[in-house]
Simulated assay, not measured.
Amino acid sequence: MGGFLGFCYRQLTFKPKSLPTTISLEGKTALITGANSGLGLEAARELVAHKLSRLIIAVRDVSKGEAAKKSILESTKSTCEIEVWPLDYDFYDSIIEFQKRIEGLDRLDYALLNAGVKMMHYSTSPLGHETNVQINHLGTSAVSLVVLPTLKRTAQKLNSPVRLTIVSSEGHFWIPFKERTADNILKRMNDQETFGTQMQRYYTTKLLNVLWTRELSSKVPAGTIIINTVNPGFCYSGLHRHESSGIIKIFLWMFGWSSAEGGYCLTNALIQQENSHGKYLSEQRQTPPSPFVLSSEGQDVQQKVWRETIALLKEEAPGLDSSAVSPNIA
């Protein structure tokens, strides 16, 4: 894993498989963030096609979420109860309101945190953090904590584990992550001089997703919530909309999977892969993450990123449930 030639070979030779037709999700509730388009939409469509009873689409733009809902119901001819909830990772008030709604659910069997951005040029969020860091890491981490209590309650009620999957990327293999030596990694990543070129910052935040998932899973018993992270492959989707050079279009034409195939990778990680707690999934199987992640330095950085993230959320989003941002979740 991780090499460019290997990446090209796998993109050309591996074909993601849809969920087996025998799988029924009747009676279950799923949440997908960023499900108004692309891979998230296709993952939602597949879950609904497998008789999911309730789906929550959490999106920044509710009108786009409603359009996605209509598309899913029309294509699947399903009677699934689909709800569109607003959720904007740029604003902690939005995440706190989302938290209140999640707490009101009677059950939550599956949570797929798919929302993300790939900004090619430096910009900052309304909260002052670099945009990729805010959306892909801080927002995703906050929402992962927010959904945990309801997931845990569901697991206890059913006496069976539930699932949380965070979307990452094979690109986490490919970046130098020079910020790892900073006194405060997340603060250093706000500095424009660290942004790097092309997709380096995006891939760094995907590395943060892997580190966060591994640390979070270490604090949650596998028999309660199965937490994993998935590389969906290189796919046609709106994620690439900020890339203007045309290179991505050429690579997509040569190597890209369809959005539906990328969605298959997401649903495989979320629904199948039962023994995947704390694991990194790629090509619909468990594979080792990058050598850095597995190194002793990577493990130290993983814990440092966790501590910094928890401290930052406590400072900037004090309205979040205090138990959700506790360093001792289990």
Rank of each mutant, 00 (worst) to 15 (best):
F91C: 01
R241Q: 12
L216H: 09
L320S: 01
C265W: 04
T33M: 05
H137N: 10
I56E: 04
C8G: 00
L281H: 02
K157P: 03
L313Q: 05
L12A: 10
S71G: 01
M254V: 13
E170A: 11
H121P: 00
P16G: 04
F173I: 01
P161Y: 06
A58P: 08
S125E: 11
L55G: 08
F173D: 00
P161D: 01
Q99L: 05
S282R: 05
H242C: 00
I310K: 00
Q303E: 13
Q272A: 14
R180K: 15
H137Y: 13
W306A: 06
P318S: 03
I96E: 13
I247G: 05
Q273T: 04
H121V: 12
S123Y: 07
G223E: 12
A182L: 00
E315K: 14
S282V: 01
G278H: 09
L52D: 05
A142Y: 03
I185N: 08
H129A: 07
L25H: 08
Q303T: 03
I72P: 10
K219E: 09
L294M: 14
A43Y: 12
S37R: 13
W85I: 10
K178R: 11
G2R: 02
C8P: 00
G196I: 02
E66F: 10
I225F: 07
R180H: 11
Q192A: 14
R107M: 11
E215Y: 13
T21K: 15
V162D: 02
K118Q: 15
C265E: 15
S323H: 04
G34C: 04
S141L: 03
